[in-house]
Write a protein that binds this DNA or RNA. Structure first.
Lengths: 141, 141
DNA sequence: TTGCTTGCAAAGTTTTTGCAGGCGC
DNA sequence: GCGCCTGCAAAAACTTTGCAAGCAA
């Protein structure tokens, strides 16, 4: 599983660079669904010369290869997830964090939709909005 | 049902202006889920002096009052829908159009999610991606 | 008349593009 | 060494803000 990115980049004719590996690794090691800016700041200490433009360009490639998925939970910016499995996301309307919702079997629901549209479906994203446990405590009413 | 916007604006202390009525009416009379820019261009002939800023400011109010809902189907810009009922949307990856998916009962699915997260849920958006009927014909493979 | 609203312009945010030097292969 | 890649800067795209004049109530 690990190191797969190297092979997948080369297969598609992309070069393997430290920046690309670092950006993917950052996404693999977090569940916080960071934006480009967040990834950039995360890598700043390790790669002081890294630019935001490189983050965006790398994200574009990783998306194309299918190594990451792109999220927009109603914010101004996009977030990225190295877990490309089909799972819903939930955003806290108070603190802004975005979490995974795991363990949901949505095939039946998707089939139902498929039968109710004339589109040929290729994918989907389910976003939920609410208040996270921590923010429920802070403001309990 | 019609003219409700007038009362709802006044109730909240907002003034009723031709621009606000026109922007809401544009959204009520379409199913294309226009962006701010699209609304602006639609109204340009009728209101030559209308500005994009007014469109954005009005959208902010309509959203606050609950007369419209905000969508982001993975595009750079937001889209707006005067149908605030809870229904999924689908975007064509080829031509970019965004359509409603009606007639879906999603309560059971939402309940299932509700039981699988520690968030206190307040809302959700379901986005599907695919190819619309027209684009399926144009490129049939 | 009062003060919210409009529309213009400027600014803010996020993302993309152009290009010269650098590095993967 | 060739050609793609990086990083800087500039630009583009979308949205927000400031302010003077205008209009709703």
């Amino acid at each position: 599983m690990e190191g797969q990115i190297t092979a997948m980049l080369r297969e598609r004719g992309f070069k393997v660079t430290p920046q690309r590996l670092a950006i993917y690794e950052t996404l693999r090691q977090t569940k916080s669904h960071p934006s480009a800016e967040m990834i950039f700041h995360e890598l700043q200490p390790l790669y002081p010369t890294m630019s935001l433009a490189t983050v965006y360009k790398t994200i574009e490639i990783l998306k194309e290869i299918g190594l990451i998925q792109v999220l927009n939970a109603g914010e101004d910016s996009f977030r990225y997830d190295a877990d490309v499995s089909n799972h819903p996301h939930v955003r806290c309307m108070k603190c802004g964090r975005v979490d995974d919702i795991m363990g949901i079997e949505s095939e039946d629901f998707i089939d139902l939709i498929s039968q109710n549209t004339s589109y040929k479906l290729t994918g989907q994203q389910f976003y939920f909005y609410g208040i996270c446990p921590k923010c429920q405590i802070t403001t309990p009413h």
